[in-house]
């Protein structure tokens, strides 16, 4: 219980930290929004009024507290570019992002775990060298190149032209598969090298432990060693990584993939906000993902405790 409270307090402190950073960058030291809102020919009175509205004339702490209040009551304001409420915008685009990223995220992790397991079991033999070599090469290829090549190969007349190059008109399962396949493949390829390397390292470490020698001496088969002893022991590390990577994949992955494939999810929304200087949207995305990340971190700590009897 004391542990739970300590973790929660730590999480709250981190949330204060990340919101402070985003407040400083996006609001306090951010560019003056006055002329964006009023145009060039504003009168002094108008400027005065808008400054008051935006809080430019108030003290740092009171502005930060207001900012926090707005953030946690989800009063995120409206987009500068089309006036849509930011909360509606996010609520509309989040499911799309999840539907887009989830299959690739799951397949990428499962495939990485499988390959990492194979490589770890055959450590320093030919299969391991092959898998490690391929994943090192995979890690050396920029995301962008993978996405471009897959798009050309699968979505254009120069290639197989099986899937759409852009867009997201999903109504039912076939249309979902039609639009999700190439982004999913891209995500799997992008992450596979990193995943394989991570899982291999974790499994190699676990396989080197002495209790593995014990179960081997008591007759366990490779499947039993891997499936029971190695997997359960590596669970904390794996859970931590998977939970940590959820916000990263949702935001970072979708930023590139959605921009590239023209899919209206969180990533595209953030990209548009960046290019348009749409402060309310960008600020909401930055702060909310950071908060989500802290929440995941706290969850990972808790999961760690559940999975490992030693720290209970």
């Amino acid at each position: 219980m004391a542990f739970l409270l300590r973790k929660l307090a730590h999480g709250l402190l981190l949330i204060l930290g990340v919101t402070l950073v985003s407040f400083l960058l996006m609001v306090y030291f951010g560019p003056d929004q006055t002329y964006n809102l009023l145009g060039k020919n504003a009168t002094a009175a108008q400027i005065q009024e808008i400054h008051q509205q935006l809080g430019y004339d108030r003290a740092f702490t009171s502005r930060y507290i207001d900012y926090l209040h707005d953030l946690f009551t989800l009063q995120l304001g409206a987009s500068n570019s089309n006036g849509e409420k930011v909360i509606d915008l996010l609520w509309r685009s989040l499911p799309i992002t999840l539907a887009l990223m989830l299959p690739g995220f799951i397949i990428g992790n499962l495939l990485g775990a499988g390959l990492g397991m194979l490589a770890a079991w055959h450590r320093n033999r030919r299969l391991d060298r092959l898998i490690s070599g391929v994943s090192a090469t995979g890690m050396s290829i920029s995301f962008l190149i993978i996405v471009i090549v897959l798009q050309v190969l699968l979505c254009t007349p120069q290639g197989l032209n099986l899937f759409p190059a852009r867009g997201w008109q999903v109504t039912d399962l076939p249309s979902y598969l039609y639009y999700v396949t190439v982004p999913t493949l891209s995500l799997v390829f992008i992450t596979l090298g990193y995943n394989t390397r991570f899982f291999r390292a974790v499994f190699v470490e676990e396989l080197g432990r002495e209790h593995i020698r014990t179960v081997r001496a008591f007759g366990a088969s490779p499947a039993q060693i891997m499936g029971r002893h190695v997997l359960k022991n590596s669970l904390p590390a794996v859970l931590t990584r998977v939970l940590f990577s959820i916000p990263l994949v949702i935001v970072t992955g979708s930023l590139v993939l959605e921009t590239f494939f023209g899919i209206p999810g969180i990533g595209k929304v953030s990209f548009d906000a960046t290019t348009n200087g749409d402060q309310p949207v960008l600020q909401a995305v930055v702060a909310l993902t950071a908060v989500l990340f802290v929440v995941m971190q706290t969850l990972a700590d808790l999961a760690y405790r559940l999975a490992d009897p030693r720290v209970a």
């Binding site: 400083l24 935001v251 970072t252 906000a273 993902t289």
Partner: peptide, 15 residues
């Protein structure tokens, strides 16, 4: 570490 990198970059670029 809690702020996803590309968003952080976007925020810095914005600031």
């Amino acid at each position: 570490d809690s702020i996803p990198f590309y968003l952080f970059a976007a925020a810095v670029a914005f600031a």
